[in-house]
Design a protein around this nucleic acid. Structure first.
Lengths: 233, 233
DNA sequence: TAGTGGTCTAGACCACGCA
DNA sequence: GCGTGGTCTAGACCACTAC
């Protein structure tokens, strides 16, 4: 039994976005144009576009068109940066330091990125401040075959924007796994907190629009008046 | 400008579910029956039902009908209990102890429940085990005017099932706010962990289908091989 | 004014569950 | 076999945007 037409069209459109035929910020063809091209009714195209809009894979604006989302700094920060104040106020992280290194993947990282044992990967280690004080240490691990981030030159605060602009990779979805731990030594040093301070530890896998894993990271957060907001529906 | 028809119908259906006209586990009238009753086309009713299904407020099953979701134990546990093993394996909490008390609301709780300062509330304090060891302490705060949970008799493991069966309240949505802390004394005592153990602290507000806040809770989790799973789309 | 997505309708046929 | 929701089509009109 074949998948419904509208789901086939959905996949077609995802493919075309992924291979860069429709680029971030650009409008897709109109519903009628797509319907004519794909030889289905406009209603079927609409249903496909609705499911994409629902997953934040396209942006529909009445009177204007259907757009491939741009990973703007604001979007990246609000959608994928979940640390807020106690009443849910957004916080804006301030970069303090960052360093890109090429190294052999630790076993757990190689596994999470689906690479062979001993593969070379890139690690971005960065420290950011919240409310003026150093509060986050992030180790971001990348497969250079997918995201060959260059070590030279400062990276922007919103990494996902950089992935899209410089490497054509749009992060569409992420899965976080949170636990509490005593700050490891590297966190103590980076954030200047006392030995054994309880910190929020987050493991994240991030995926592009085709569902491919493009990043894995390990982050540590000082949660003094700060928390990770999650919504369950 | 009035809201679109299908949204008005959505609200009508939510109202009717909330006032118990359609009960959990029961089927709603068919699309055609609703269309005839509400004097709109079947397609419009369908669109309303689709938005409800999308928010998990109804359950659609081809060939059978559209159902008001029952908060089964499984559903409550999988949807609103987010602690998993490192690979995302679900864990099933085992109740160890629980106590319901009536007391004056602490200021922060009164505020979160929208009650006057000094109002009387119910507190359920319970301890549960994961993987065989005590791992969670939960303080659940209720407005007795909404959820007059009785102190006598054991409560089921899945509280939200109890809210629905015994009080007609269906929890539809929750917002969690997570931070890390050194275990407070009550957590040390309840879970038997050493002083100062880092624990995951979760603040939750839970809402019914009409959007009314029906519960607030504060939980502490030992995260040894355990984490809180969150999905960002 | 022209073109876009948003709403609403009407009707056909399909896939599924059940008696 | 019948009733349900799921898919697909066709067409009308509205609301918003751009020119």
């Amino acid at each position: 039994m074949p998948a419904p037409l509208y789901l086939q069209i959905r996949e077609t459109l995802i493919d075309r976005m992924a291979r860069g035929e429709f680029r971030p910020g650009e409008a897709l063809p109109s519903e009628f144009a797509l319907a004519a091209e794909l030889k289905v009714s406009q209603g079927t195209v609409r249903k496909a576009l609705d499911t994409l809009a629902n997953d934040n894979l396209v942006l529909r604006r009445q009177g204007r068109g259907t757009f491939v989302p741009e990973t703007t700094v604001e979007r990246a920060l609000f959608r994928f940066f979940r640390l807020t104040g106690p009443e849910g106020e957004s916080l804006i992280p301030q970069p303090l330091s960052e360093k890109v290194t090429r190294r052999t993947a630790p076993a757990r990282i190689a596994e999470r990125l689906g690479l062979a044992d001993g593969a070379k990967v890139l690690r971005i280690r960065r420290v950011r401040a919240l409310n003026g004080a150093p509060a986050t240490l992030e180790d971001i691990w990348l497969d250079p075959a997918i995201l060959p981030v260059r070590a030279e030159g400062a990276l922007p605060n919103a990494l996902y924007t950089h992935y899209q602009r410089s490497h054509g990779i749009s992060v569409a979805r992420a899965e976080d796994w949170l636990s509490a731990a005593a700050a490891p030594r590297k966190v103590e040093k980076a954030l200047g907190c006392p030995a054994g301070t309880p910190v929020l530890m987050a493991r994240r896998d991030a995926f592009d629009i085709t569902g491919r894993k493009v990043e894995t990271r390990e982050s540590w957060f000082l949660t003094d008046g700060i928390g990770y907001a999650a919504s369950l529906a």
